[in-house]
Design a protein around this nucleic acid. Structure first.
Length: 138
DNA sequence: CCAATTTGACCAACC
DNA sequence: CGGTTGGTCAAATTG
């Protein structure tokens, strides 16, 4: 399969056309809130239950078992990138610095300040999820 | 070249 | 038992 094969030229114009563009565009539209930690994306899946995309981030640290997941509506056009960030895990190293979000926890954080605190935190513009149970209702 | 990032596949848990 | 969803890892690709 090599031998040159001139036929390999470009005949493929079927797909692979707006894949990068769309992805790039989507990426551009989304704005991930910086928490002050470094994350590494390790997966992305479409959650049918909510009809939204979910991205999985893991703390870059080795001893940091903290994980972050971001979910956002799939459709990009129409504007509005509502991103829901959910933190999971327990940090243990210093922050990377940078405007976290608030509370620098200057007080005597030590002890167990961020042991079980960043659990299920929701950022972004919450519309009416005051207490949406989540039942697609039938 | 390296690192980062992406997509797919695989696995586990749950109903 | 099977199907399904969610979640994670690995490989491939791009910059």
């Amino acid at each position: 399969m090599s031998t040159d094969v001139s036929t390999t030229s470009m005949d493929q114009s079927e797909e692979g056309l707006n894949r990068e563009d769309e992805q790039e565009m989507e990426r551009r539209r989304l704005k991930l809130p910086e928490d002050g930690y470094e994350w590494k994306k390790y997966g992305q899946k479409f959650i049918k239950n909510i009809g939204k995309f979910r991205s999985y981030f893991k703390c870059q640290r080795e001893n940091c078992m903290a994980k972050k997941r971001a979910e956002w509506s799939s459709r990009s056009d129409g504007e509005l990138g509502e991103i829901r960030i959910v933190y999971d895990g327990v940090h243990s190293h210093d922050q990377h610095s940078s405007s976290a979000s608030n509370s620098q926890e200057t007080s005597a954080s030590s002890s167990n300040a961020n042991q079980y605190n960043l659990l299920t935190q929701v950022l972004g513009g919450d519309h009416q999820s005051t207490s949406t149970p989540r039942p697609p209702h039938a």
